[in-house]
Every structure is written in C-alpha cells, then in structure tokens.
C-alpha cells in the first residue's frame, strides 16, 4: 500500500493572488527515495510543508485537495499527531532550533520528550543519531554556538531520533562540506532501505541522480515530471524548467552519448565513465 497519497493538492498563501501549488497528485511507496527539484519559487518548500501539515494548519491560506500519510489525512489532524509519522528538516537549520534548550544533547531530546519516550530510550536514540551525523563531540555545546554545517547536522539528527515513517528534507546538505554531504546522503539512503520513505529537495543534481529512485520536477507550482533520474535529466527542455542536469549528463549530451538500453543520457559518474570508455574503445576500433 502506498505510504503517501497526494490528490489534487492546491494551496495559496494568505494575502497572495496566485496558487503556490497547482493541482498536484502523486503516490509514494514505503522506502522510496524521492528527489524534488526545480527552480527557486517553484513550490518545493511549500510542498514539503504541505506534506507535514504545517500547510494549512500553521500557515492557513486557501487549501484544496488531500494529503494522506497511510490513512491519516494531514489537514484534518493536528501537527502534533502528524509529526509522529512524518519528520521535516527545514531548509534553514536556524529555524529548526527550539531556542529552549542549552545543549545539543537536550535539543535532540526535545522531540522525544514531547513523544513521551522513556529516559533510557531517549538516551539510546540521541547517542545513535548524534554519532550517525558525526556531532557527538559537540553534545554539550549550546546549539547557537555551532557552525552552520554543524547546526544543519543537528537538525537532521533531531528528526532521525524521532524515527518517523516518512522524512522530508529541504536542502539538508546545503551548508555541509562535500564529504559531509556524501555521508548524509548515505545515511539517508540507509534509512530508506529500512523502509522509511524519503523526500528530499536538493539543488545538487549529481547527488539526486545517484541516490533517488524517482525525481519530481516542479515548475510554477505544478508537477511537470515524476520519473527515474535518467528519464527526467534526459528531458530535452530541462533548462526551460530552470534546472541544470548533472555535469555527467551535460557532458554526455554534448558528446551525443546515450545509454543503448533505455535511450537516456547517463546521469552518474559511473554511467558516464562506462559510456565514455565505450566511445573511446569504439574510436580505437574504427582506426
């Protein structure tokens, strides 16, 4: 059974004239890793907030359609109910910090305390998620004394500790160094392999191509494509949607190399390497 079902979702922010989300429908299975891409103001963050019920329960505005997580309709339940099933990592980690806790350790505990977990269970989960995000050494620091990247790791850890069934991440690695960013992608991938559904907004197309099962492309509040990374990044008019394909895809497009099997351009380092080696060998054979 589908984990997330979105039916004809429409939304308009208060005091605005145009819909930010225009009739979006899709379903997502348990354990799927979904990449959400699109230009600035395409509706990516708005969609994330609609999936956890912050829209419409917090932001208000005009709302139409339905969002289900299993059989729970998010608009009809309080955020505190929905957040047991779905966790969101905000685009700006500063917005995620409660401001009511004096250490990183207690900050991670905040969500767990509100879920009413036992002390030992909490400590186990906090230790696990701090270590997973490699910030255990900062557990006694004040959250506001962390660097931007460390704070972003803390925000991710605080959601992972709550063990929701669906995790939404809005550009979770924007402030991380390249290896840290890779580590987060791997950690998130392992969560999806455990059956947690992942939706991640990201501008790092090479990462989206390497990790997503499917890629959702948004433009002006509409969903214009929702398919495998190979198919989406091979769209001829991709640039019109304000998206630059992964570097590997752009190289292969310019060289005219497609994957023979599926007729798409390579999207990952490995695929591009294989395709260019084939081309080189072909070149040698011609001589």
């Amino acid at each position: 059974m589908a984990k997330i079902v979105v039916e004809h979702l429409k939304y308009r922010y208060p005091l605005t004239d145009e819909l930010a989300l225009k009739d979006i429908s899709f379903t997502i299975e348990p354990g799927e890793f979904i990449g959400i891409i699109g230009e600035n103001n395409a509706g990516k963050s708005t969609l994330c907030q609609a999936l956890v019920g912050i829209i419409p329960n917090f932001y208000k505005g005009a709302y139409g359609g339905k969002v289900f997580i299993d059989d729970l309709e998010v608009a009809k339940h309080s955020i505190s109910e929905v957040c047991r099933k779905v966790g969101i990592v905000f685009q700006n980690p500063f917005n995620q910090v409660t401001g009511s806790k004096l250490t990183v350790y207690e900050e991670i505990a905040f969500g767990l305390e509100n879920m009413g977990l036992s002390r030992t269970e909490m400590m186990e989960r906090i230790d696990y998620s701090l270590k997973l995000l490699d910030i255990y050494q900062y557990k006694d620091r004040n959250p506001f004394d962390l660097s931007g990247g460390q704070m972003q790791r803390m925000a991710i850890a605080s959601i992972i500790a709550m063990r929701p069934e669906v995790i939404i991440l809005d550009e979770p690695t924007s402030q991380l160094d390249p290896q840290g960013s890779e580590e987060v992608f791997r950690a998130v991938q392992s969560l999806s392999q455990e059956g947690i559904s992942i939706l991640m907004v990201e501008h790092k197309m090479e990462k989206i191509a390497a990790y997503s099962d499917r890629v959702m492309l948004l433009k002006d509040g509409k969903m214009v494509a929702f398919d495998t990374p190979q198919k989406v990044f091979s769209l001829e008019n991709l640039e019109q949607y304000g998206v630059n394909a992964p570097a590997f895809t752009r190289i292969c497009k310019k060289l005219g190399i497609k994957n023979q099997k599926n007729g798409c351009y390579p999207v990952t380092l490995e695929e591009a390497e294989g395709a260019i080696n084939l081309l080189k060998n072909g070149g040698i054979a011609d001589e």
Partner: peptide
C-alpha cells in the same frame, strides 16, 4: 582534498576515473 573532507569538481572526478 580528501584529507580536508573535500572532493574535486564533478568534471575533474570524471577525468580521474578515466
């Protein structure tokens, strides 16, 4: 670069692989 937790640009990574 690896020592500094960095990685080369994607194009450079492909050069290295090839």
């Amino acid at each position: 670069l690896t020592q500094a937790y960095l990685e080369p640009p994607h194009v450079t990574q492909l050069c290295n692989r090839l």
